[in-house]
């Protein structure tokens, strides 16, 4: 039975897996500053045993509050940082092995397939370069476009992301936030990737500009068949563009399902609380709601058992003692909870 009234979500896809993430773990040591040597004083459990997969042409939403490890997952997939353990497969190939042992050519080939765009469109463009130089930079690195075609290609990319040819001669500081995000997308698309990670791409943009970028992401998916990992704390935008959604809390995935299933009948109490916490832009929808008490605990010493239990309205004794297993509780609907909302 549906808990919330929700309509018209994206239909789930049946295509093959493009990305498989298996038991990904990342711990960051915490140091105290000594005179010469540093002393390790703790471990941040940034990502703890995270598994999911992303299909071709799919948008996979990853939701969570700040510090839940969603950005770390993105950086691990792209191998910008090394994992503590776990594996990521891209088209069946082990990404970490490849980056460790393969030749430079092979590594670059893999880099071309996965790209990312960031939250802050101000920091993500080199302020000393023109837009043309920024977008043609990938051509220099990968040498996949002969110099004679650079111009044509850059103009093509600009058009693809909704900018104009004359923008190529300008510098990043002459653009607004939304336009910069478009430039970032053009740069990412310059290597013709199959997979794009969008890390909070709209949260620093103005409301009227957000829709432009969200729609652009959707259009690009249709035109060039990109798969996305869409990372955000904003449930509404995740719901808008994702086929499937995973919810993270303190480094772990607590729930994963098709978008409609997840938002209609969340199994995990945390997902439920998140959904209730989002203000609905409709005064008629104003309702009494359960507000989650407390704050997200520190990932340095996460709570025992289920990490959510200190804040959970449904918590029982067992929740503090045993870690719930992340499993399929309904068809294609996974959660890690002893007392899910099953009815």
């Amino acid at each position: 039975m549906a808990k919330y009234h929700v309509e018209g979500g994206k239909k789930p896809l049946t295509s093959n897996n493009l990305i498989e993430v298996k038991n990904l773990v990342k711990y960051f040591p915490v140091y105290s500053r000594g005179v010469l040597l540093k002393k390790q004083v703790g471990i941040v459990h940034a990502v703890d045993n995270v598994s999911f997969n992303i299909k071709r042409k799919e948008t996979f939403g990853l939701v969570g509050e700040s510090g839940c490890g969603k950005t770390t997952v993105a950086r691990l997939i792209l191998n910008l940082i090394k994992p503590t353990s776990g594996e990521v497969f891209f088209e069946g190939e082990n990404v970490f092995d490849k980056f460790q042992s393969a030749s430079k050519k092979e590594k670059l080939k893999l880099r071309r397939k996965m790209q990312l765009i960031f939250q802050n469109p101000y920091g993500s463009l080199d302020p000393r370069m023109t837009v043309f130089d920024i977008i043609s930079e990938p051509f220099i690195i990968h040498k996949h476009v002969p110099k004679s075609q650079w111009k044509e290609k850059v103009y093509g990319l600009l058009e693809l992301v909704g900018l104009e040819e004359y923008h190529a001669e300008r510098y990043p500081h002459e653009f607004s936030g939304g336009q910069r995000q478009r430039i970032c997308m053009a740069r990412a698309l310059a290597v013709e990737p199959e997979f794009l990670i969008a890390d909070e791409p709209v949260s620093s943009l103005d409301v009227s500009i957000r829709a432009q970028i969200l729609n652009l992401l959707g259009e690009l998916q249709e035109r060039i068949g990109l798969a996305y990992l869409y990372i955000s704390h904003d449930l509404s935008s995740v719901r808008q563009i994702s086929h499937r959604v995973a919810v993270m809390y303190l480094g772990e995935i607590v729930e994963l399902a098709d978008t409609d299933k997840l938002f209609k009948s969340p199994l995990h109490p945390y997902t439920d609380a998140l959904i209730q916490a989002v203000p609905i832009p409709d005064p008629k929808a104003r309702a009494m709601k359960i507000v989650l008490p407390g704050e997200v605990p520190s990932p340095i010493n996460p709570p025992s058992g289920c990490r959510f239990h200190p804040r959970c309205p449904r918590a029982q004794k067992i929740c503090g003692k045993k870690e719930p297993v992340f499993k399929e509780l309904k068809s294609d609907h996974f959660a890690a909870c002893f007392f899910p909302h099953l009815d």
Partner: peptide, 17 residues
Amino acid sequence: ELEFIEAERALGAGNIR
């Protein structure tokens, strides 16, 4: 630490570059 450096890494740019 600026994001464009990370973007360059993701594009495959090496340390020297």
